[in-house]
Design a binder for these strands. Structure first.
Lengths: 326, 326
DNA sequence: TGAAGTTCTAAGCTCTGCTTATGCCGGTAC
DNA sequence: GTACCGGCATAAGCAGAGCTTAGAACTTCA
């Protein structure tokens, strides 16, 4: 489902934000390296599209109207997300001489690395990073051969020849489509019920799948897999389309849970905890940017973010909470 | 600070996501109402910009490469945010006949309403909403005269002639710039220290400011205001530029805390809790879309979202309801 | 009163991006 | 084995969006 029309131009939104920050159209234009009339035109066209005045234009500068204020704030997630995206894209291009070579499993690469790098960029703007993606074994192999400076894997037992450190938690959640019977339940699903329900899952060997198997095994149970798909995106799409329920990293379904495309199913007494670990070679000292990134990641800027740029379920003692008390 | 160049075209990102969902370029093109060659060109140009292949093109369709998978996931926050933004923009345009007329205080309008409407759109796609923004008194006045179907205010004592219900919590947080002395502190700041530090704040009469005044008053203290600014955006910019510390709604600084533009300062023993309430007329039954929205908002899809589309500081059992009208 | 700042308007040009029409390739059915 | 169908790429031509430079009106401040 595409973004509904009419899609406003993000450059214009960015420009509007700069006007809000700088207090004048011409200064904003300068920051964006365009002529002042160009900026003026863009903003006017944005206002025409929105159907409301966004700026009070005075000869002393320009200030936001209330509607403009709202648009700027509504744009913030988009622009911030775009910044993370650009940071991520930068790691894909094969660099001539990256100063920081990262390797990460798909999940970590997709949902954690860009946010971390965005944060790193504020303290060390000149670090050029490259990112290699693969499964956990691949990451470990790359680390051993010294092809990367720092690696990230989730949920895996890290071999003893590599140093490691927990940098985040990404507990799994059980999700279903909004129309699914389990989406209306008032009481938690039991592990036994879960084990009898066919799951949408990744291929055997996936870390995500292993966590579910282990969690159920503690109750003497084993999962039934009804559909195997190759990517997180495909799993989410299948579940949303009503193909069944799935166990999936909490960070990966954040957006879907927020706007109701997916619904979380609470399962009682099941430990779906999963750790994200940084790994590096024991015998080789960490390069400076790697040390820096590790420090950034290990020292959360806010206690409710739990060390990740994306919200992670907060570490629960043993049992997770129960259904919303309503 | 603008989004760093080169900014990828969001339409192309949206298109790529559709290719991932639908498995073929031509089908994605159809969904986006463009010709197949146009889609093909856009995707190729996106790949050229990224510097890596994003799609395996086969004569049976197109599938994502690992890099493509990453780009799709990295795009998700941008595209979802854009959807919310478009939803919000739709409420600003003066409608001919909106089916749901909302009124909200600035903070609620900026940080909660779009996410709520996005969620509502999944269950009731045909609802056309309009949104009126103002301060709390304005919202209450609009509600009394029946010019809106449902109102939202934060932290205000709701008069008895209006019905109300808590729909979210938006506790204040104290923030400082990353370089600020308080950003390195290991022990919490005391209320007394806070009261001696000049704050960046809104004008007197702001609900946010009142919460701080009350919280400090409990310790027999009063805040010192060093700089008064008219908008949330301005306050955040000033604090980030090192102008001092500020008390500000937790939801409004989410992005800044995530990427480290601002740092949260923990203050011991200070109750900065604030509620967001829906208000409506007691004597007039709620129109259907309003009831629906209220139900959506009151029944969080995920308990860790606490009823809002944006993360809110978690609920503290502490006594609140001390925030007077602004 | 003059200087410097802000904004909008106007004209011309460049260049992106779309469409339609066509070719190539591989799988699939008969 | 052959013919068809679906999918993607290429080519040519057109239209429109958006930028730049140049200039004018207006306000504030010294």
């Amino acid at each position: 489902m595409p973004v509904p029309e009419p899609v406003p131009d993000v450059t214009s939104l960015d420009l509007l934000r700069s006007v809000a920050d700088l207090g004048s159209i011409s200064r904003a234009a300068a920051v964006h390296r365009m002529s002042q009339p160009a900026a003026s035109m863009r903003l006017r066209s944005l206002e025409r599209q929105v159907g409301t005045a966004l700026l009070h234009r005075r000869n002393t500068g320009a200030r936001l109207t209330p509607a403009g204020e709202a648009v700027v704030e509504w744009s913030a997630p988009v622009l911030d997300g775009l910044t993370s995206l650009v940071t991520g894209l930068g790691t894909l291009r094969e660099q001539d001489r990256p100063t920081l070579r990262l390797a990460a499993s798909m999940t970590v690469a997709e949902y954690f690395v860009p946010a971390w790098l965005t944060r790193l960029r504020t303290t060390a703007p000149d670090v050029v990073a490259s990112l290699q993606m693969g499964n956990s074994e691949h990451v470990l192999a790359v680390m051993r051969t010294g092809q990367a400076d720092l690696g990230f894997v989730e949920g895996a037992d890290v071999p003893h020849d590599l140093e490691s450190s927990v940098v985040a938690h990404d507990d799994l959640v059980i999700v279903a489509a909004p129309g699914h019977p389990w989406s209306h339940r008032r009481r938690p699903v039991t592990p036994e019920q879960l084990s009898r329900t066919p799951l949408v899952a990744r291929e055997p060997g996936s870390g995500t799948r292993a966590v579910v198997e282990h969690a159920l095994a503690r109750h003497g149970l084993a999962p039934v897999v009804g559909l195997e798909l190759g990517s997180t995106t495909a799993i989410k799409a299948a579940v949303a389309a009503g193909a069944g329920v799935a166990a999936i990293g909490g960070s990966t379904v954040r957006g879907e849970l927020e706007d109701g495309r997916l619904v979380e199913v609470v399962v009682s007494g099941l430990d779906l905890g999963r750790e994200v670990r940084a790994v590096w070679r024991r015998e080789v000292p960490l390069v400076a940017p790697a040390r820096r990134l590790l420090a950034e990641v290990a020292a959360p800027v806010s206690d409710r973010r739990a060390g990740a740029g994306v919200p992670t379920p907060r570490r629960r003692p043993a049992d997770r909470r129960h259904a919303p008390t309503g």
